[in-house]
Amino acid sequence: MVEGAALSAGRALREFGDVPLVTLEDLPQDGIVLPLGHIGAPTVSHEMLPSGREAELIRDTVERMLGRPVVAVMASEIGGGNGVEPLGLAARLGVPLVDADAMGRAFPEVQMVSTYVAGKDPGLVLLADVQGSVAALWPVDGLWSEQLARALCVAMGSTALMADYVMSAGELLGAVIEGTVTQAISIGRALEDAAAASETAVAALQATLGAVALLTGKVADVERRTGGGFVRGSVIIDGVGDCRGRRLQIEIQNENLVAIEDGQVKASVPDLIAIVDSQTADAVSTESLRYGQRVTVLAWPCAPLWRTPAGLRTAGPAAFGYDIPYVPVELAHA
């Protein structure tokens, strides 16, 4: 998915020019920021690509409805293709990209965003499809935003570009997770440097993220079931090398939710759990997990906002139906 987003973003940058990276403070405080991201099924967005006009249609609708200019684009989630695509969308709109996002990671449901945790109303929500249709909603809260957006997305062909929490730069201050674009760039740079110095990619990634390696092993079993529009299931990873004899189970709902070893929780949402290729350190997405892959499981602390009571209510273990206490990953491995 990231490759497709990288292709369209690269093309937009060549066609429309470079994009400045800014902080919210750099922007006119009453100017509108568009948080953008694709929602829908990854398999669909990999097949039915965007028209390229979606962001422009959303921008024009927002400016008409709010009567104020859009001054920047922001990624709704920094994870996966949604972290890369806003760069190209900002280029198309000729505006800067905010060095922040609303997750600091990826989450499967649209109310699982920092803006919701910070108590913001979803405000104006817009979806644009490949045909050029734009839908604008004023949902009463984040949960309704999720349900209405989901229904519209299906009608739009199960993939759409979405903007929510459309508000001014001043209103977004303190309600986003800052510095995540810079962090993404530093991860890329660390991996490049590691390749140049023939160091192991996973070690470089681990150092950059401040991550704990939970296990290095092979995917021994992948069990998937669909329910409520999501792929749920679990992955079993058997240790190899120094980890031989150990076994880690990861519960998934599009994202990796909980990692369990010997009945003990080793890491859980909202902390980050990533399954990466042991050789290349490339992320292995839930949909592409296959028996036999050689992987390393990394876990690292989420943004502090997610550890507040409101953050844990929104995206802690209980929000995904797990009756387990949340233990910060660095404490579980102290």
Partner: peptide, 14 residues
């Protein structure tokens, strides 16, 4: 065959 979808990335892009 797919327009208006998919025009963001034309054929042979990579």
């Amino acid at each position: 065959l797919g327009a208006p979808s998919s025009t963001a990335v034309p054929p042979l892009e990579s």
